[in-house]
Design a protein around this nucleic acid. Structure first.
Length: 843
RNA sequence: GCCGAAGUGGCGGAAUAGGCAGACGCGCACGACUCAAAAUCGUGUUCCCUCCGGGAAUGAGGGUUCGAUUCCCUCCUUCGGCACCA
């Protein structure tokens, strides 16, 4: 056999740079991947998160998109009518940065990048349906973003309010709570610590859906996303209780104060109250002689940043107001304090303090010498003395029995939260009966702040006039276009649109008087909350999306993307769908059935890739060197997709080698001098093919891309051996090659097409073939090797027929000389034949 | 502190209804081809020993079991989310 010649000819003929663009052009010309409604076929909407047009496609985009593409292709071969659209999330800050730097309009920069990235995306050989492309900064797109804002406004889900909001001093804009990260409270975009500003801004009423967003019923989503969202929403069950304040002399009517507590069962232990410094009633409850101290404390608190105030290990501070409240269950007069450990942004901004059973209240009470009354007594701690306020060393926060609580003494308090705790349940019922409190739920979740003081976003379509206040722009006047003739878009802290000479001038839609437009633009997460709907009919000028398309394609069957969006995009996206549903625009409770998140491709030194560190891997260079198929395959192979990992520039060589070996197997002339393969060889080949097919099919379903590639590599190795053994030309061989290319087609669409169409001369296109069906009987083994264990250690192996009975296997095992040696004439204590796979002998 | 995910050779990773640990690939070593190198092909590659053969090993320790990477308990480490949230 002359291997040398084969090698030489192969290296010349494997040239992905030649056939990859050829097929990309061909597929596009033949509209192979157009997704058109076809009622005869089951649909599959495969969605992958759309990119921001930052300039160049990086390896992370490939990592997100090409395995998703492979799976979409697999679904398509399985007979689904698959829609796999792509677009651009094209509004956002970097465009403004670039605009300032290069003195060009953000629009120009953005569209230039889009064009560049479209070209790069085409080199991936993905089955994107470009006729469905949607670009969020197109007026035909943001017209509908604005339209949705107006619908939300009309349904009371968009509102304007003044509040202390998060402000990024580097991005010069407000941020939503979700966009502030970590304990050091930094901007999600740029890492700058945020500050608080008191501003009037537009909000979406996301909290209305807090409870519904906690339900993930029927959703095949990763656990970490579900728990992350659950944590974020932060639901606490408890009670709200009204305390009366004791009137100051000049003020006869003492105001009622509502508080929220998760532990109403400890109400009898509430020995003081604490107000947040910002609480509106602080001044009213403050006694004249304490007024100066309170004023000073409030001023100090206002100067502190949130980061300082919310630092956990900080020592508690506070001042007495001189005012008192009455504990509604025991009529005890309790002092009211002001302290910054109580936050205005949670609950009612005031708490009842139960120092005996709350760590924070305990610390505060000890520091200021306030009364501590235990009301839950631990049980079962034999001999240990009962809790006493004077001697307790820390708050007792576990289960026990209620004491010092009047009629409830003796009630069992468990560690359960909410109504599952008998003590809490009993007390809430009592409070409701007496009319002093009620069952209540609180969330840490906040409404979504969507105003941005930036230029490159969808203008908020609202107009203000002195007489009629805020009103939406009439829908027939949409879109409210961004001006082209703007030369001042530098972020100043105020919206650049404000400084355009004429843009903000409008007329009131109600009375026709002169009015002013809202000059803030929308958070770009608003644009990406509905892009999956725009893909349905991207050029529709009658509606945001076409109803027939919606009815056929929605909901999204599989959504893939990065895991950094768990509490941002994915929460907004769900909120948006539910809001639209309640307005009668969409149907169903959730937009996405199945969600899968890929991990991140790290650089070779295990750090995050970044342009500034110069450790990025450029896909364009890799495509040039290896071809797109190899890059795709390596991205699927090198790590668990859902986990990601560091790039390895040597590792890709292995995948490149595999690709060349595939090419060689299909293009090399058959070895001439071997005799025809034995029946066994052919049967074994066929078995391996169908075993691989089963595995690959399974792994595509479960997103286990790395084992798809390794199974294919393994089968290729077997095929080489079978060819050596003379299988070439047999019907088994032909079947193997056909199935091999079909399995390869989703992963490496170009080489599969080239070999299928050009080398095997099969009918174009392999991407219109259906996924092969595994033959179970062919995949089954005839003979199996069974390990024989003695006391858990493998001592011998026997080969038996795959359908041997347990008794046969047992007999064969005992017949083994090695086993007999170990038995040494004794009777084994126990013999177990495990599922016909293994024999375990216990001596 | 609370919630979640995960710890397997030099490396990326296979294998879970409880049944042969290390598939596949990288790297490395040796060999073939070559004047030589690259490429390619072949062989080997968890660790330890006295290398015929035996022993140990899936973050650590314990438990259940004939049998545990897989199940249970305790602990350690890494990553992610939340955190003075009443």
């Amino acid at each position: 056999m002359n291997k040398q010649n084969a090698t030489a000819s192969r290296d010349i003929s494997f040239n992905p740079q030649a056939f990859e663009p050829k097929w990309q052009t061909q597929w596009e010309a033949d509209k192979l991947y157009r997704a058109v409604i076809d009622e005869r076929k089951p649909k599959h909407y495969a969605l992958t998160m759309l990119p921001y047009p930052s300039g160049d496609l990086h390896i992370g985009h490939w990592y997100a998109m090409t395995p998703s593409d492979a799976r979409a292709r697999f679904k398509r071969m399985q007979g689904y009518n698959v829609m796999f659209p792509m677009g651009f999330d094209a509004f956002g800050l970097p465009a403004e940065g670039a605009a300032i730097k290069n003195n060009i309009h953000p629009k120009k920069w953005t569209y230039a990048n889009i064009e560049r990235m479209q070209k790069q995306m085409r080199s991936m050989g993905a089955m994107f349906d470009w006729e469905r492309e949607a670009i969020s900064c197109d007026p035909e797109y943001y017209r509908w973003t604005q339209w949705f804002f107006i619908q939300l406004y009309k349904h009371g889900l968009a509102y304007r309010k003044k509040a202390a909001v998060d402000w990024c001093p580097s991005c010069n804009t407000t941020l939503a709570r979700e966009q502030v990260k970590g304990d050091d409270r930094v901007c999600d975009r740029c890492g700058t610590p945020v500050i608080k500003k008191e501003l009037e801004q537009w909000f979406f009423r996301t909290t209305k859906y807090a409870d519904e967003l906690l339900s993930f019923e029927g959703m095949d989503w990763p656990d970490f996303v579900k728990t992350s969202q659950t944590n974020w929403i932060g639901r606490s069950e408890g009670a709200s209780v009204t305390f009366k304040t004791v009137p100051q002399e000049d003020d006869k009517a003492g105001d009622p104060i509502e508080i929220f507590t998760t532990r109403p069962d400890t109400l009898w232990g509430a020995t003081f109250m604490v107000f947040s410094p910002e609480h509106p009633l602080v001044d009213k409850v403050t006694a004249p002689e304490n007024a100066e101290a309170v004023r000073v404390y409030k001023t100090e608190a206002a100067k502190q940043t949130d980061i300082q105030r919310e630092a956990k290990d900080r020592e508690k501070t506070g001042v007495f107001t001189g005012g008192y409240a009455v504990n509604p269950v025991n009529e005890e007069r309790i002092p009211i304090w002001v302290a910054d450990y109580v936050l205005m942004s949670y609950g009612t901004g005031a708490i009842m303090a139960v120092p005996a059973h709350d760590e924070r209240d305990f610390e505060f009470a000890r520091k200021f010498g306030l009364k501590i009354t235990p009301v839950i007594q631990p049980v079962g701690a034999d001999g240990s003395p009962p809790l006493l306020g004077e001697t307790m060393e820390r708050a007792y926060e576990h289960d026990g029995v209620m004491i010092n609580s009047g009629q409830f003494n003796g009630t069992r308090a468990t560690n359960d939260k909410g109504m599952k705790n008998p003590a809490i349940k009993a007390v809430i019922e009592y409070l409701e009966q007496k009319g002093i409190g009620k069952r209540d739920v609180n969330y840490r979740y906040r409404d979504w702040l969507i105003s941005r003081q930036r230029f490159w976003g969808a203008p908020i379509p609202m107009v203000y006039c002195e007489t009629h206040g805020w009103n939406p722009v009439p829908e027939d006047q949409l879109p409210v276009l961004l001006p082209d003739d703007i030369d001042e878009w530098k972020p100043t802290g105020e919206s650049p649109l404000k400084f355009h000479p004429t843009w903000k001038n409008a007329i009131c839609p109600i009375g026709g008087e002169p009015a002013i437009r809202e000059t803030d633009t929308m958070d770009t997460f608003m644009c990406s909350s509905w892009y999956h709907l725009r893909y349905l009919s991207p050029h529709d000028d009658k509606a945001p999306f076409d109803e027939a398309e919606y009815n056929y394609w929605m909901p999204v069957d599989t959504y893939t993307g990065g895991n950094e969006h768990a509490n941002m995009h994915l929460l907004y996206f769900r909120f948006f769908h539910k809001a639209l549903r309640d307005m009668g625009i969409t149907e169903g409770n959730e937009p996405v059935l199945q969600l899968r998140n890929q991990g991140m491709v790290l650089s070779e030194d295990h750090s995050k890739m970044s342009k500034s560190k110069g450790n990025v891997t450029a896909p364009d260079t890799l495509v040039k060197k290896y071809g797109a198929d190899t890059v795709r395959a390596y991205l699927m192979f090198f790590a668990r997709w859902q986990q990601g990992g560091p790039w390895d520039s040597h590792g890709i060589e292995g995948t490149a080698r595999w690709m060349r070996r595939v090419w060689t197997l299909f293009t090399d002339p058959a070895p001439a001098s071997v005799s025809p393969a034995s029946d066994d060889t052919k049967k074994n080949l066929r078995r391996k093919v169908h075993q691989t097919l089963k595995r690959v099919t399974h792994d595509f379903e479960t997103f286990e891309f790395n084992t798809i590639i390794s199974s294919l590599m393994e089968l290729l190795n077997e095929m080489y051996k079978a060819r050596e053994a003379g299988a070439f030309g047999s019907s088994e061989w032909d079947e193997a090659t056909e199935i091999y290319l079909k399995m390869m087609a989703p992963v490496a669409p170009h080489i599969a097409e080239e070999l299928w169409t050009e080398r095997l001369s099969k009918s174009y296109s392999i991407h219109q073939q259906s996924w092969p069906q595994a033959d179970e009987s062919a995949a089954k083994e005839d003979m199996i090797e069974i390990p024989l264990q003695v006391n858990g250690k493998v001592r011998d192996r026997i080969t038996v027929s795959a359908d041997a009975s347990e008794d046969d296997i047992k007999a064969a095992a005992l017949a083994s000389e090695v086993i007999q040696k170990y038995l040494d004439g004794k009777e084994p204590r126990k013999i177990i034949v495990a599922h016909g796979k293994l024999v375990s002998i216990a001596l």
